[in-house]
Design a protein around this nucleic acid. Sequence first.
DNA 1: ACTTGACCTTTCCCCTGGGGCAGGGTTGCA
DNA 2: TGCAACCCTGCCCCAGGGGAAAGGTCAAGT
Lengths: 243, 243
Amino acid sequence: MITIGQLAKYVGVSIKTIRVYHDKGLLPEPDRDVSGYRRYDAKDAIDLIKIRTLAEAGVPLARIRDLRSATGEEFQQALREIDDELTASIRGLQATQVRLRELAAGHLAPLPTEVGAHLEHLARWGFTPRWVDLQRDLWILVFATYPDRAITLFHDQAETLANPALRQLFLDYDQAHDLDADDPRIDGLARRIVKATREHYGPDELPELDAASEIPALIQGTVNASSPAWRRLDTLIRAQLEA
Amino acid sequence: MITIGQLAKYVGVSIKTIRVYHDKGLLPEPDRDVSGYRRYDAKDAIDLIKIRTLAEAGVPLARIRDLRSATGEEFQQALREIDDELTASIRGLQATQVRLRELAAGHLAPLPTEVGAHLEHLARWGFTPRWVDLQRDLWILVFATYPDRAITLFHDQAETLANPALRQLFLDYDQAHDLDADDPRIDGLARRIVKATREHYGPDELPELDAASEIPALIQGTVNASSPAWRRLDTLIRAQLEA
DNA sequence: ACTTGACCTTTCCCCTGGGGCAGGGTTGCA
DNA sequence: TGCAACCCTGCCCCAGGGGAAAGGTCAAGT
C-alpha cells in the first residue's frame, strides 16, 4: 500500500493532480491509514494510467469521469470518437504549422514595392492623402487575406487607373467625400460609375461585385463610416447594379 | 474605421477574444469614437491575424505579447522555436493516439488466463493469500506497463517457481513477513537467495536486478512497507548483490 | 529522547484563454 | 418612436492545475 507521493512519482503526475482527480470523481478516494494518509494499490495505479492516457488525448475530465460508468461497448465507441478528435486536432496543428511557415517566409512584408510605387502615383495624380491611406489599408488587407490572388487584382486595378477617363471617376469619388449627402452631383457620379462598370464587364457578369464581397467588406465599411456622402454613393451604386 | 464586431467577424474570432487581447497587451487599444466604441483599421486586422496564427500554434499569449517588441531576427528565431514545439506536440499527440489504440485493443483486460491459473497454483503450493494478492498486483502492473514484454517475464517467473528448490526460497520469503526484523533466519535466507540468483544468472549479468528497476519500484515499496522483516531482507539482498 | 527533513493533510487564492451574463448606452432602420 | 442589433464595463464561471499556508506524521541520525 503506497502513499500518494509514490503513486504520483510512479505514474508521472503531481500529487496535486491526483487530488484533483479525487475531487472530480475520476479516481475513487482510497482508504486512509491510521494517520489519515491515502493508501493506494496497483489497481489505482493502472486506473490512473488510463485516466492520464485519456487526459493527454485532450479529453475533458468530466467526460473521463462519465466513461468510468460506461459499458464496454460504450467505452469502445467513446474511444473511437476520441481517436477521431485526436486525428482532427493533429490535422489542425499541421495546418497551423503551414501558416506559421508562411508567416516566417515573409508574408509579413507589408507590401510589394510595385504597390508602394502605385500609391505614390496616386498622390501625383491628385488623389487626397485620405484616399491614398485608404488604398494602402485596402492592399495590406488584400495581400494578407488572398496572398496568391492579390497581385492579379492589383494589376487589374492599376490598369484601370492608367485610363484617364476611369481615373477621373475615382478622383470624383475621392472628392465626393466632403459633399453633402443630398448633393445632386452624387447621383450623377453614381450613374457614371455604374455605366463604366457595365461597359467594362458587360451586362451579365459583374466580377467587381463578387470581388467586392470577397475583398473585405472591412474597407467598404471604413469608407462608408467616414462620410455620409460616400455612404449614399455606395447605396446608389449597389441599388443600380442590382437592378 | 470598423467596429469590434466587424473586426471579430472578419478575422474569425469572438469580440471577447479581442477585448482579452487588449487587456493582455497583445493588441493595443485603438482610439474610441464619440460614443466610446473602439474603432479599428486595417493594420489592426493584420496584427490580429498574426496573433491568431501564433495563438493557434499554442503559443501562450504572454509570449506573443513579448514578441511584439522583438526585432526581425529575434522574431524569426522565435518562429523557428515555435515551429519545433509544434512539431513536438504533434508527435506527442500521435504517441497518445497510439496508446489510446492500445487501450482500445484490449490492454484493459485485467490479466491473461494463464496468469490467473498461476496465481491459483500459488495458493495450492502453500503461499499465503497476502503473497498471492501481492503477486496479482505486480502482474497487473507489469502487464499494464510493459504489455509486450510482460508475458516473457511471466513465463520466466513461472518456470522458476516450477523448480521446487527455488519455490522454497519464495515460500520462505513469504513466511519471513512475520519474523522480527533482527531474526537471524533473515540473514540466512538473504544469503540463500543471493546464491541462487548468482547461480541462475552467472556472476556477470544480473538481469533480475535490471528487470527489478524497470518493473515498478511500486511493488517493492509495498513489500517493504508492510513488514520490517521484508524491508531488512530487501536491504540485505541488495547489499550482497552489489558487493 | 530529540531534532531534522521529508512527507502528508487541508484550505485558499492564482494563472491562462476565454464564455456568458447583467445592466446599461448607442446606432441604424422603418 | 420603437425595435433590433450593436457596443460598453464588470463580474463570475470553466479546466487543469501551481503554489503557499499551517499543521500532522514518519524515519533516520544523534
